[in-house]
Design a protein around this nucleic acid. Sequence first.
DNA 1: CCAAGAAACTGGTATAACAAGGTAGCTTCT
DNA 2: AGAAGCTACCTTGTTATACCAGTTTCTTGG
Lengths: 109, 109
Amino acid sequence: MNASNTQIQMRKGLLEFCILHIIFRGEVYASDMIDELTEAKMIVVEGTLYPLLNRLKKSGLVAYQWKESETGPPRKYYTITEEGKDFLVTLDQTWEDLIQSIQFITSKH
Amino acid sequence: MNASNTQIQMRKGLLEFCILHIIFRGEVYASDMIDELTEAKMIVVEGTLYPLLNRLKKSGLVAYQWKESETGPPRKYYTITEEGKDFLVTLDQTWEDLIQSIQFITSKH
DNA sequence: CCAAGAAACTGGTATAACAAGGTAGCTTCT
DNA sequence: AGAAGCTACCTTGTTATACCAGTTTCTTGG
């Protein structure tokens, strides 16, 4: 039971939330997402991100388009679907509720 | 990919944090914890709580004492250890950091 | 004694994240 | 042209946490 595992465990399920937000803002591909998440100190590895993106795709929350790159192999650019936007609204609410719950517990004396 | 599973996933790892806080406030037994968590809308079932308490015990973060009850079988009353208090401080920080990270991502346009 | 309830616990399953790889396309350099 | 290196995407196996659906043990009331 160490701090770094705790971080991992606390982030579970929140990654999906963050990634939907990033895709919501506009067309991105995986490396863009990793950069943004890293900037926000939500470090993520590829082995986590790719399966997650496939889950989102399979659930119909996001879509992608192959696009040529000028500096290397083609990229999958992701966009959010209408269903994804709806789901994101409920995720926003779930997150707010969660903060409230934790606040309620940690502020009691 | 439904909303109720999302809630479950978002809460992962945060339960440990909440329970340490509850025990930190003073001697409690499992049903007390479930009541408090339910009040805070962090619904938890016994099958989740008991293994978690055993993990915390095994890690030396909490201790317990058997106490007689006037209305039924004896209860395990939990208290936090010094190590547990230290760990709780780092958990508080991790939670703050997490809120910051999510804030950073969700507030961007 | 037996039923009912309270309290603690267990075994099997699902999910998500990680670690450590692999594959394929493109560019650069000799 | 061939080799090396980078970029981008993907996969497999492991671990940790939570849930579900039970079981066991103890105590009290009829």
